[in-house]
């Protein structure tokens, strides 16, 4: 392997890390470090945690322990740390990667969206690429290189608007599996043997919506349907959607944000439901994090977001593959 060819990318990585750390410090964030080996690595249906001995797993994100810190009275915290997700390998995925995750107590999801806009600017300026970024052909539409303007404001869409605009279907979020299936058929999707609500949804989303997001400028997609809630709270005025956004830019899924669910009763019910989903799909079922549930009751209204740090570096340096911005990819270890 030619490590020297990575020198420029590794220098850019450091410059970006330094710049974003300084931005967080200026915003009054406390940088924290939470455990990488935990008994409950999360219950999300599609994440595989890597076992780490003695009933411990490597974290798939630092979310649970960071929330416990918020509940314990730290209103603004950030962490840039390694996370591990088994079986994920591709030009945008590595099983070991770096996550940048931050929480703001008392803030709205709109404020977190502004944080994302600011951080993309900070990162782009740190490598001297502002305000237009080069998107390489492999991430461009139809395999062509394109430019991405990253000045705020980013485009803001709801999931419903995006599905209506790009897939031509009207989705509420409370459809039954059969209703969703007929919407997918109308959009011309090939569902194969999909029987789960989220699998059908993502078939529609990946076939028709995702390729259009974050083109020419980044897109924030808000208001996800309740079945895709994970750890987000319901919108009080629209209970079939949750307070969540995803950020797409230049062919990359860059960040996922939640208005954090602080209700321990609803959270427990979702953990139980997700554990059941995992069991049905033949996946390992992890123990429920009782210490997190105990802490949630003390957590003030909070919004949090996880941004893929490697992908942020890819975005502002125009890298084609995540391995181009890491010193060693998993198959180089």
């Amino acid at each position: 392997m030619n490590l020297a060819s990575k020198k420029a990318a590794l220098e850019a990585r450091v410059a970006i890390r330094r710049a974003v750390r300084s931005w967080f410090e200026g915003q009054g964030f406390l940088e924290v470090e939470t455990p990488a080996r935990v008994p409950s690595p999360g219950q999300e249906v599609h994440l595989e945690a890597i076992p780490a001995g003695e009933a411990r797993y490597l974290i798939t994100s630092p979310e649970y322990h960071m929330k416990r810190l918020v509940a314990a009275g730290l209103p603004r915290i950030v962490q840039i740390c390694r996370c591990w997700r088994g079986g994920e390998r591709g030009s945008h995925h590595e099983p070991e990667f770096t996550m940048m995750e931050w929480y703001r107590a008392g803030a709205s999801l709109a404020e977190i969206a502004c944080d994302c806009e600011a951080l993309v600017e900070v990162a782009a300026r740190a490598v001297g690429h502002w305000p237009a970024l080069d998107v390489p052909a492999s991430r461009g539409r139809e395999g062509r290189p394109e430019k991405l303007g990253v000045q705020a404001p980013f485009e803001r869409l709801t999931v419903r608007e995006a599905l209506s605009r790009f897939a031509g279907i009207g989705l509420c979020g409370d459809e039954s599996v059969d209703e969703l299936r007929s919407l997918a058929a109308r959009a011309g999707c090939n569902l194969g043997t999909a029987v789960h609500w989220d699998d059908i949804f993502f078939q529609i989303f990946l076939d028709h919506v995702e390729p259009h997001l974050g083109r020419y400028r980044p897109t924030l997609v808000f208001d996800w349907p309740l079945p895709l809630a994970a750890l987000a709270r319901r919108k009080p005025d629209d209970p079939v959607t949750v307070e969540r956004f995803e950020l797409y830019a230049g062919g990359l899924e860059l960040a996922n944000a939640f208005g954090e669910l602080c209700d321990p009763v609803e959270q427990r019910a979702r953990f139980v439901e997700e554990a059941e989903q995992r069991r049905q799909r033949g996946r390992v079922v992890y123990p429920i994090d009782e210490k997190l549930l105990a802490a949630l009751g003390d957590m003030p209204p909070t919004c949090g977001v996880a941004m893929g740090f490697d992908r942020l570096v890819m975005l502002v340096t125009g890298a084609e593959s995540i391995r181009d911005v890491m010193a060693f990819a998993a198959d180089e270890v």
Binding site: E88, H92, F202, L206, E210, E246
Partner: peptide, 14 residues
């Protein structure tokens, strides 16, 4: 072909 995986969804191969 390309491995893709939405943050909260199943893995797909584009």
């Amino acid at each position: 072909f390309q491995f893709i995986k939405p943050g909260k969804g199943a893995a797909f191969t584009r």
